[in-house]
Structures are given as structure tokens and as C-alpha cells.
């Protein structure tokens, strides 16, 4: 039995009729037409599908769209300013070469934003543990750690 859900993604309201089994990631990608959240695994390990729901990171492949009914979501598409100016975290990833193939990047950036919101000056170990839910197969994480530190130090923006 389909249900009607209404939610806000990056400040825009969406109302759609969905099957209860529709995963949030598929809703975001197939219904809302976003390309930022990615699918990298099915088992809630890799974090490529990470989005913010109510300001907190969740893995959108491990949540049904109906669970997001009435919530406010932010995906990577909503991180940069409306005029296209990158967020300091995005800018820091760019400056520090915190990405290679880029597939994990949208989820990674959102996790970093969440991490820095809770802990504006994390240590290396806090950064690394804070990113436990986001796998990257390309960078070896070192440049990501550098990017987080740069963003924390306010060096993200140009």
C-alpha cells in the first residue's frame, strides 16, 4: 500500500506517493532526481549514501523513505551556497586533495560537517574515528584528515 510522504530536501519541499519499501537513497536518487548520494554497499558500512536528516548523518540506504516523512534533509547538493560558492569543508577537500575518484566524497563531506559541528577542533584520532562510517578506497584518508583539520582551522575558504 503506497503512502504519501512530504519532506524537505535542501530547503525544497517534495510530496510523493511511495511504496513503504522504497529506500531513502532510491527516493533521493530516482524520485527527487539527485545524483549526490551514492550507493556503495548494501550493508550500512560504506557511508557513500550519507545524508543529513534533521541535521544528523544517516545512511540513506538503511532507511525507508517513509521514515523521512516530515523531516528536513540535506544532501551534498545543498551544502554549497546558492550562488555556487563552496562550503569551507568542500573547499578544504579541494585544496587538500581529499578526494580521488570522488564516489565517497558526498557522504564524506556530510560526515565531516556533522563531525565539526559537534567538535570544532578535533584531534587526528577524533577525526579518524569520526569517519568510521565512511569508507574511501582511494586516498588512504591522509588528505581527508588534512582537509578536516584545514576546515577546522578555518582554512577551507579562499
Amino acid at each position: 500500500m503506497k503512502r504519501t510522504i512530504s519532506l524537505t530536501i535542501n530547503g525544497k519541499t517534495y510530496t510523493d506517493e511511495v511504496e513503504p519499501r522504497l529506500l531513502l537513497i532510491h527516493y533521493l536518487r530516482e524520485v527527487a532526481g539527485l545524483t549526490g548520494p551514492h550507493i556503495g554497499c548494501e550493508t550500512s558500512i560504506c557511508g557513500a549514501c550519507t545524508v543529513l536528516v534533521g541535521g544528523k548523518t544517516v545512511k540513506s540506504c538503511t532507511m525507508f523513505a517513509v521514515q523521512a516523512d516530515g523531516r528536513e534533509l540535506t544532501t551534498i547538493e545543498g551544502v554549497a551556497a546558492a550562488d555556487g560558492k563552496l562550503d569551507p569543508v568542500q573547499e578544504a577537500f579541494w585544496n587538500e586533495h581529499g578526494l580521488q575518484c570522488g564516489f565517497c566524497t558526498p557522504g564524506m563531506v556530510l560526515s565531516v560537517k556533522h563531525l565539526l559541528a559537534a567538535n570544532p577542533n578535533p584531534t587526528d584520532q577524533e577525526i579518524r574515528h569520526g569517519l568510521d562510517g565512511n569508507l574511501c578506497r582511494c586516498t588512504g584518508y591522509q588528505h581527508i584528515v588534512n582537509a578536516v583539520k584545514a576546515a577546522a582551522a578555518g582554512k577551507g575558504g579562499v
Binding site: S44, G47, T50, K56, T57, V58, K59, T62, M63, S111, H114, L115, G130, D132, G133, N134
Partner: peptide
């Protein structure tokens, strides 16, 4: 437990 995303949900 798990990771940040898992702890949030």
C-alpha cells in the same frame, strides 16, 4: 557502537 551514522539512527 557502529559508527556515527548508525549511532544517529
Amino acid at each position: 557502537i557502529g559508527d556515527a551514522q548508525v549511532r544517529n539512527m
